[in-house]
Amino acid sequence: MPAKSQPQPQPQQNHLLAALSPEVQCRLFPHLELVPLPLRAVLYESRRPMRHVYFPTDSIVSLQYVMENGASTAISVVGNEGLLGITLFLGGESTPSRSLVQSAGYAYRLPRARVKEEFNRHGQLLMLMLRYTQALITQVSQTAVCNRHHSIDQQLCRWLLLSMDRLSHGHLTMTQEFIANMLGVRREGVTQAASKLQQLGVISYSRGLIKVLDRSKLETLSCECYAAVKKETELLLNYLPQRPVITNTDAIPTVTLKTP
C-alpha cells in the first residue's frame, strides 16, 4: 500500500498567527505562502535585503552571528512560537545575523509590504510582534551570558530544552558538528557533555540517538539561563500553550544526533 501523505501544515500551527483575531487573519492569510525549510537552508544572510517574514509551523531556525573567519555561534532559536524578520517592521531592511534552519519543516512567509501595511495599522499584529521582539531580546541577551559564563554541559541542556519547546513532532536530526557550531564549541565537547547526561540518567544515548528520559532533571542540570528565558517568554507570549513536563516516561521527545 502506498504511504499516506502528511497533511499540509496550517497557519494556525504557528502560535503567533493563531493568536490573531479573525479580522486580522482574514487580511493576512490570503497572502501567506507555505514554503519548505530543509535542514541547513539559509533564510536570511547577513547584510542581505530581506523580502519576507517567516512564521515557522514545525521547523526551528537558528539566528547565528558569523565572524570574519567564518566561525559562528547561535544567538537565539525561533520556532512555532514566533517569527523571523523582526528588523523589517523595526525599520531595517537587513539583519546582521544569519538565519539557518536547524530542524527541517515548514513555514508560512509573508511579503514585507504586507507585513508593514498591517503593522502600520497600529493594531493587534503590532502589539504581538513587539511583545515577541522583547522575548527574543531576552533570549539573545541570556545566550550571550550563558556562552560566556557556563559550561558546555549546561549550554547543551539549555539548547536541548529550547529545541524541545519548539518541536511539535518531538525529534531532531543533525550532526554533532552542527550542534557544536550552534553552541560555538568543539565537537568533542558536545560528545563528552552528552555522555555525562547519559550517565546521570537524564538521556539515553545509543547509535547517535538521544532520548530525553527526565525533562525535570534536565531543567535542573541546566543553568539559570533557560529558566530566565522561559519565564520571560511565558510572561510576554501569553498565547503559548502549556508545555508538558517529562519525567521517566516512555512518551518522550527524541533527538537524533548523528555523527558525520
Rank of each mutant, 00 (worst) to 15 (best):
A3L: 13
Q6F: 08
Q6W: 07
P9H: 01
Q10E: 14
N14V: 06
A18R: 08
A19I: 00
A19G: 05
A19Y: 00
A19V: 00
S21R: 06
P22S: 04
E23H: 12
C26Y: 13
R27P: 06
L32M: 04
E33N: 11
L34T: 13
P36M: 09
L37Q: 09
P38G: 09
R40C: 08
A41W: 01
V42L: 14
E45L: 07
S46K: 02
R51S: 12
H52R: 09
H52E: 08
V53E: 10
Y54Q: 02
P56D: 12
D58G: 05
S59W: 04
S62L: 10
L63M: 14
V66R: 15
V66A: 13
E68M: 08
N69D: 15
A71S: 07
V77E: 14
V78Q: 01
G82A: 07
L84W: 05
L90G: 04
G92F: 10
P96Y: 11
R98A: 06
L100R: 14
V101I: 04
Q102I: 14
S103C: 13
A107Y: 13
A107M: 11
L110Q: 03
A113W: 04
F119W: 12
F119L: 04
N120E: 11
N120F: 10
H122Q: 11
Q124K: 10
L126H: 14
L126K: 15
L126G: 00
M127A: 15
M129P: 02
L130E: 15
T133Q: 10
I137H: 10
V140R: 11
S141P: 00
S141M: 09
Q142F: 11
Q142N: 05
A144I: 02
H149D: 15
D153P: 00
Q154D: 01
L156F: 08
L156K: 03
C157T: 03
C157W: 04
L160R: 06
L162R: 12
D165P: 05
R166N: 09
L167S: 15
L167I: 01
H169E: 02
G170M: 01
M174N: 12
E177T: 01
F178P: 01
A180N: 08
N181L: 01
G184P: 06
V185S: 05
V185K: 02
E188H: 10
G189Y: 13
G189D: 14
A193C: 07
A193F: 07
S195E: 14
S195V: 00
Q199A: 10
L200T: 07
V202D: 08
G208T: 02
G208Y: 06
I210D: 05
R215I: 07
S216Y: 11
E219R: 05
T220G: 01
C223M: 06
C223H: 00
C223G: 15
E224I: 03
A228W: 02
V229T: 13
E232M: 12
E232F: 12
T233S: 12
E234L: 10
L237C: 09
N238G: 00
N238C: 04
P241N: 03
R243C: 03
P244K: 00
I246Y: 13
I246G: 03
N248E: 10
T249D: 12
D250F: 03
D250S: 09
D250K: 15
A251C: 08
A251L: 07
A251M: 13
I252F: 12
V255T: 07
V255A: 14
K258Y: 13
K258Q: 14
T259Y: 07
T259R: 11
T259D: 10
P260M: 02
